[in-house]
């Protein structure tokens, strides 16, 4: 297991390095002059030259990449062009706010999705299972930005229960802070909840159809024990993989939902960077998100290994 953890950690480092290269390559090699992308089509040649000088764009690409990478290793994420501030603190601030949003949504998705999935699997064919199956079809398919505008129209514009958009720091009072979180968290969770519960149901059903469950029943174990001691530990393995996939979808949701709710998180910051062609900020933000995603995948892999004795104790002889 120790060797496995070290191998996976090394893998994460490699993935982050490689994605940094990929991000850099896409930003710098795709057709389109970076300086023009930043300044717009009608920039004067002099302005372009100044900017190229300032950004070091005249250096060879590998040197530019090295400068960027070594800067990051020294904690220098680069300079936001539009805001003219170091990107690091900007990203860190936004990341904290996004983490609260995404973290709450993820807890709801994981706990709720698994609970609903297990319920559906153990009540296969019952009314509750059928209703949930139908709901899942719809909820997986509805885009979160549509939920977002619906929620704003209904709960903010019509009912005036909750603030439509924005963010209140906890210093302004916990109630205000929380009230700005409710709608984004719900919108973020709803589609993923459907996804996780649907796939958990499938994993659980498969475990319940297995022969070791038949064996447990033949041993006279109660249905409760069969479910939680025999089926669940095996069904959790695919569920962990599903949760890792959904974490990627969650990051996408965060970008969209933060934009709709004007929530000042990392997703909003990225969209801002794209809209204003703030490439250094964009690069740094992307790298941070990719690293988080890689760490989430690592957590999923380790969780999978911890639950799966085949990995924990090596493969069968």
């Amino acid at each position: 297991m120790g060797a496995y953890v070290i191998r996976r950690l090394l893998g994460v480092v490699l993935v982050v390095l490689a994605t940094s290269l990929l991000i850099f390559a896409i930003v710098h090699i795709l057709p389109g002059n970076v300086a023009y992308a930043i300044l717009g089509e009608y920039a004067t040649p002099a302005a372009v030259a100044t900017l190229q000088e300032r950004l070091g764009l005249n250096d060879p690409l590998w040197l530019q990449y090295w400068h960027w990478l070594s800067g990051i290793l020294h904690g220098q994420m680069g300079q936001s062009l539009v805001m003219d501030r170091p990107a690091g603190p900007l990203i860190l601030d936004a990341l904290g706010r996004s983490a609260i949003l995404a973290g709450s949504a993820f807890v709801i998705v994981a706990s709720g999705g698994i609970a609903l999935g297990v319920h559906a699997a153990t009540h296969q064919g019952h009314v509750s299972d059928r209703v949930m199956t139908l709901a899942q079809f719809v909820f997986i398919a509805v885009p979160d930005f549509f939920w977002a505008i619906l929620a704003v129209v209904v709960f903010a514009s019509w009912l005036h229960w909750l603030p439509a958009t924005g963010y209140a720091p906890p210093a302004d009072g916990l109630l205000a802070w929380a009230s700005h979180l409710v709608l984004p968290v719900i919108v973020l969770s709803i589609g993923l909840l459907a996804h996780v519960s649907r796939l958990t149901r499938a994993a659980m059903l498969e475990a319940l159809r297995s022969r070791y469950v038949l064996m447990a029943r033949a041993k006279g174990m109660s249905e409760r024990r069969v479910l939680w001691r025999h089926a669940a530990p095996n069904a959790m393995l695919p569920t962990i993989t599903i949760l890792a996939i959904d974490f990627g979808l969650l990051i996408g949701g965060v970008v969209v939902v933060e934009t709709v709710f004007a929530y000042p998180g990392l997703g909003r910051l990225l969209v801002f960077a794209i809209e204003h062609h703030d490439l250094p900020l964009l690069q740094a933000g992307m790298l941070v998100l990719t690293t988080i995603y890689a760490l989430a995948n690592l957590a999923a892999d380790l969780g999978y290994a911890a639950l799966n004795p085949r990995i924990r104790y090596g493969a069968a002889a």
Partner: peptide
Amino acid sequence: FQDPSSTLNPA
């Protein structure tokens, strides 16, 4: 039962 590799719980 037949086939003990599927009747024993792998977890």
